[in-house]
């Protein structure tokens, strides 16, 4: 699955296993409480693309209610470290995902504030940070460019 930011033509490629995992949420998740985690992948500047290879799923210290998902550092940082080491130091943090009990998901004000804050971080390895919301029917992806939220378009199936 490939997604494109039409403004800067940055391409986000999502590995099949990650896509499948997302669709398991769309199809099977009850959305009683929100789920979420971090996005992990590699940078491919030769093709102006970023590849999403792994995600983390909720850890016990995350706070999950019907309308919020507060991700803690616990568990996610460790998982990130492992992916980094096992990939010969190629895999990096690429952003966040969470679920919404909406057909076509829309970011809330809290989400937008959170995304802008995360994108501004000086220690991000990737110039591009992505945010994914999984709804009950659709999956939507956004990125931040010049402090603006831009939705990515799906360009190609596997």
């Amino acid at each position: 699955m490939r997604y494109k930011n039409s403004i800067d033509n940055i391409i986000l490629e999502i590995d099949e296993q990650v896509e499948k995992l997302f669709y398991t949420y769309v199809e099977n998740y009850d959305f009683a409480v929100e789920s979420g985690g971090i996005l992990i992948g590699t940078l491919n500047p030769a093709y102006n693309s970023v590849r999403l290879t792994n995600i983390t799923e909720p850890f016990p210290k995350d706070i999950r209610t019907q309308y919020e998902f507060k991700r803690s550092e616990d568990g996610h940082q460790n998982a990130m470290n492992n992916f980094w080491e096992q990939s010969n130091f190629r895999k990096t943090y690429l952003g966040e995902w969470h679920t919404h009990n909406q057909k076509i998901p829309q970011p809330s004000h809290i989400d937008i504030k959170n995304w802008l804050k995360i994108s501004k971080k000086k220690n991000n390895n990737s110039e591009w940070i992505f945010f994914i919301i999984i709804g009950t029917e659709e999956i939507c992806i956004w990125t931040i460019q010049n402090k603006k939220i831009i939705k990515l378009e799906r360009i190609e199936n596997y």
Binding site: F69, F89, R90, E96, D111, N114
Partner: peptide
């Protein structure tokens, strides 16, 4: 290659 990522925390609603 990349430096070690600092994932921090995140708040969604």
């Amino acid at each position: 290659t990349v430096d070690k990522s600092i994932v921090g925390t995140s708040e969604s609603a």
